[in-house]
Design a protein around this nucleic acid. Structure first.
Length: 481
RNA sequence: GCGGCUGUAGUGUAGUGGUUAGCACAUGGGCCUGCCACGCUCAUGACCCGAGUUCGAAUCCCGGCAGCCGCACCA
């Protein structure tokens, strides 16, 4: 599906809207409409169900969007998310100022402020390597800065650029509350904020985004084991390593891969989420290994999982599985001076972290991209448990006696399912409308219903109809799941 | 952030200085014993924002905003 076609349906049907649209909108900021919110909630629900059930010691938490400056000193975001860029005033090429200074003057610009860097460039007469034009340096900060409080007592803070930090900060207390057991998983679904210089590709790069992340804290001595590894050993993973670039995706038996078992286990579970829970086409999914340049310095192992999306021109990152080592906890221990070591059977150490990180908004978009089918009908072939509505109820015609009965059926089903009621236009039009928003089932009340309490149950993908007793509807709909 | 292209009802479009701003689909009401969007009928609804040129601007100029493409950016 093309990007414009998806966006068209999103705006027309109420999946997505540009934020602050009546003021012209803002690049990188989008709202979820009524259908989009339902669908996002469903996706998040499936995610929770799938990943939190992987261990009895995995738990969801919810931490704040605003965090004090110190957190990002410890995490490295203040240093790494702040790039001093030198821009040429005539050809507008851009260069990293620290590299420029390092290469030309053999000195480090680390810790210098903007004036100091500009002064060095001016004093040493550094010019644009492209065209020889004048350079001016600006800081581009990918984090949104805030001031908490008023007057002289303000505290510097930032909107979190990833949800992960909340889990690291909450680790110490969570670990104690949950009675000192490893592995411990802290999951979070929430917002993160990045001041992208230029958000592009519609809904793919956002300034305010949703992440679903699971931070698994474990003993690094146990990285090559997982109690349930046998159950996944023979599963085939769809791998695209650095050596595979330019070649085909390889299907490799999990047990044959040269990666730690603890890491592999979660790769399988991620692949299962996409291919089994969501039922996406296998060939659209792959794990892609990142090379040294692409991965953050603290990630010892980093594979992204990607989906092949027509609207975005190929395989696109949906999330990553990151072995962050003890980078975060050690950083926070150092800056906060809190002891973040654990003591398990007399062994004291800082746990390592395996992070499963998902971009919720991208995953949402990917479902639309992969599941829209536009032939003689436009059908959104969503898995039943992610569709905004599970079923729709129609009176065959807008007649009072039919409407009354239809409302009864609607109210009955509402107890158990997300249901839409529609009585406008022709019956065919209503079926097609539901197809377009992915509603798996439609139920139609006609004059026979008034006689014998049976209704027409129509299925989205096959368009097949069957006659069913109203009292059996709930059971029937559940069975079809 | 730079350069190029673009911006008319919800969507797709017609209109290139003076139009009641046209059309299609969609949407809402009414009718239809009627089961797969293209039955009938009525109705709602738009010139991205701001300044300028002009007697007069959707149309021309400038700026902004947004979108698309390329470059840059995306620890």
């Amino acid at each position: 599906m093309k990007s414009e076609e998806i966006m068209d349906i999103c705006m027309r049907r109420g999946f997505l809207f540009p934020s602050a649209e009546i003021y012209g909108g803002v690049a990188g900021l989008w709202d979820y409409g009524p259908l989009g919110t339902r669908m996002k909630n469903s996706w998040e629900h499936l995610w929770r169900k799938h990943f939190l059930s992987l261990s009895s010691n995995f738990h969801e938490i919810s931490t704040t969007n605003i965090l004090p400056k110190e957190v990002f000193e410890a995490s490295g975001h203040l240093e790494s998310f702040n790039d001093a860029l030198a821009e040429c005033s005539s050809c507008h090429s851009r260069f990293k100022a620290d590299q420029l200074i390092e290469e030309n003057l053999k000195i480090s610009s680390e810790g210098m402020n903007l004036e100091e860097i500009n002064k060095i460039i001016g004093d040493n007469d550094l010019k644009c390597p492209q065209c020889g034009g004048d350079l001016s340096v600006k800081f581009y900060n990918l984090m949104f800065g805030l001031k908490l409080g008023a007057g002289k007592t303000t505290k510097e803070a930032y909107l979190r650029p990833e949800t992960a930090q909340g889990a690291f900060l909450a680790f110490k207390r969570s670990f104690k509350t949950l009675r000192n057991k490893l592995p411990l998983g802290l999951a979070m679904i929430g917002k993160a904020f990045r001041n992208e210089i230029s958000p592009r590709q519609g809904f793919y790069r956002l300034r305010e985004l949703h992440q679903a992340e699971l931070q698994i804290f474990f003993d690094p001595a146990n990285i090559n084991e997982h109690e349930d590894f046998e159950s996944v050993e023979n599963k085939k993973l769809r791998m695209y390593s650095i050596e595979d670039r330019g070649k085909e995706i390889r299907k490799v038996k999990c047990g044959d891969l040269d990666l730690p078992k603890f890491y592999l286990y979660y790769m399988v579970k991620i692949q299962d989420f996409y291919l089994e829970t969501l039922g996406l086409p296998r060939k659209m999914f792959r794990f892609r290994e990142l090379d040294e340049k692409e991965r953050a310095f603290y990630n010892k192992l980093h594979w992204d999982f990607e989906l092949n999306l027509e609207s975005l021109g190929g395989f696109k990152e949906m999330g990553g599985i990151h072995y962050r080592t003890d980078h975060d906890l050690s950083g926070h221990q150092k800056v906060s001076k809190e002891n973040l070591m654990v003591n398990i059977n007399g062994k004291k150490f800082i746990p390592h972290v395996l992070e499963l990180s998902f971009g919720v908004d991208r995953n949402f978009w990917a479902l639309l991209d992969l599941e829209y089918e536009k032939e003689e009908r436009t059908i959104l072939k969503l898995p039943k448990n992610v569709a905004p509505y599970y079923c729709a109820v129609f009176p065959l015609m807008k007649k009072e006696e039919l409407a009354k009965k239809a409302k009864e059926v609607y109210n009955l089903l509402l107890n158990e399912f997300s249901v839409m009621y529609d009585d406008t236009g022709s019956i065919g039009k209503r079926y097609r409308r539901q197809d377009e928003i992915g509603t798996p089932f439609c139920i139609t009340i006609d004059y026979d219903t008034l006689e014998d309490d049976t209704v027409t149950l129509r299925e989205r993908d096959s368009m097949e109809q069957e006659r069913a007793k109203i009292e059996k509807l709930g059971e029937l709909l559940n069975k079809k799941d």
